[in-house]
Computed example of a mutant assay.
Amino acid sequence: MPNTKVGMYDVDDSSAKDISSFPYLNPNEFSVACSAFLPRLHQSQLQAKLIYNESKIIVGIELVTWKVCDRAEITTVAHILLSPVYLLPTLYFTCTSTNDNGEYHPITLVSEVYEATSMTENIKSMMKAPSMLQFSSSGTISQCQHPLHDTVCFYVHPCHTGDVMSTINEDPEADSIGLDSYLAIWIGIVGGAVGITLKG
């Protein structure tokens, strides 16, 4: 069976679906999941690229989305990174607004993020799983220091992600979640909060 090269890791294709401690990912598994997810993002016509560290190992994915909101264009730059604490993918992002005059305005308040991304409505429609109902529209997004750039950004807190992924994986009618599908399912749970959705 051929091996897949992901950064400095060699991953046997026969084990590409296996996750050693589901729903938690180790850095190697996360790198493989990112590599497997990138083509799906491109199929959805999302601008996306892999993020590498100084050792040329995949450490995440960068996504850029645009949306027109009240005569302003909202640009969201999102990074999917592995939380070293939760061992789960975490969505870090920044939003900027550009008005009709070309004036650029970074969005710095959580309340502005909710408005710009329509998060309140998205949360109402997307939080179907029982454990996701523990989220509140005021507690899902927080500010933090970006783990790679050491700048202030927003992030979708991963504290309930493991429970939700486990609930989905236990569904007898659903396919087992592997590294090849992990991030596609995860983005369906988390990405909608900030307007990132997959097509098809």
Score class of each variant (00 low, 15 high):
residue 38 L to V: 11
residue 63 L to G: 00
residue 143 Q to Y: 02
residue 95 C to M: 15
residue 117 T to A: 15
residue 85 V to I: 15
residue 13 D to H: 15
residue 43 Q to L: 12
residue 8 M to K: 13
residue 113 V to E: 06
residue 104 Y to P: 02
residue 170 E to A: 12
residue 183 L to M: 09
residue 80 I to N: 00
residue 58 I to E: 01
residue 65 T to N: 00
residue 12 D to C: 09
residue 95 C to H: 06
residue 175 D to Y: 10
residue 46 L to Q: 06
residue 36 A to F: 13
residue 51 I to K: 11
residue 144 C to N: 07
residue 45 Q to H: 13
residue 116 A to S: 15
residue 4 T to H: 12
residue 179 L to H: 02
residue 155 Y to D: 00
residue 155 Y to G: 02
residue 178 G to I: 03
residue 102 G to W: 14
residue 137 S to R: 10
residue 103 E to I: 10
residue 169 N to V: 00
residue 39 P to S: 06
residue 4 T to K: 15
residue 121 E to L: 09
residue 20 S to H: 10
residue 31 S to F: 00
residue 170 E to R: 12
residue 48 A to K: 02
residue 200 G to F: 03
residue 128 K to W: 08
residue 194 V to R: 01
residue 95 C to V: 10
residue 198 L to T: 02
residue 34 C to Q: 00
residue 29 E to A: 08
residue 199 K to C: 07
residue 174 A to N: 14
residue 164 V to F: 04
residue 116 A to W: 01
residue 22 F to D: 05
residue 166 S to T: 10
residue 9 Y to G: 01
residue 141 I to L: 05
residue 156 V to E: 01
residue 181 S to N: 14
residue 23 P to Q: 04
residue 153 C to N: 04
residue 169 N to F: 01
residue 72 A to F: 06
residue 88 L to Y: 10
residue 147 P to C: 08
residue 54 E to T: 12
residue 92 Y to R: 05
residue 138 S to G: 09
residue 133 L to W: 00
residue 177 I to L: 11
residue 160 H to Y: 15
residue 73 E to Q: 08
residue 181 S to L: 10
residue 76 T to C: 07
residue 75 T to G: 03
residue 13 D to E: 15
residue 142 S to T: 08
residue 31 S to Y: 03
residue 168 I to F: 09
residue 181 S to V: 07
residue 136 S to P: 00
residue 13 D to S: 14
residue 83 S to N: 14
residue 169 N to C: 01
residue 192 G to E: 04
residue 54 E to Y: 11
residue 43 Q to A: 12
residue 72 A to H: 12
residue 36 A to V: 06
residue 172 P to N: 07
residue 8 M to E: 13
residue 130 P to Q: 08
residue 157 H to K: 13
residue 199 K to H: 06
residue 145 Q to R: 07
residue 60 G to Y: 04
residue 73 E to H: 02
residue 142 S to A: 10
residue 172 P to Y: 04
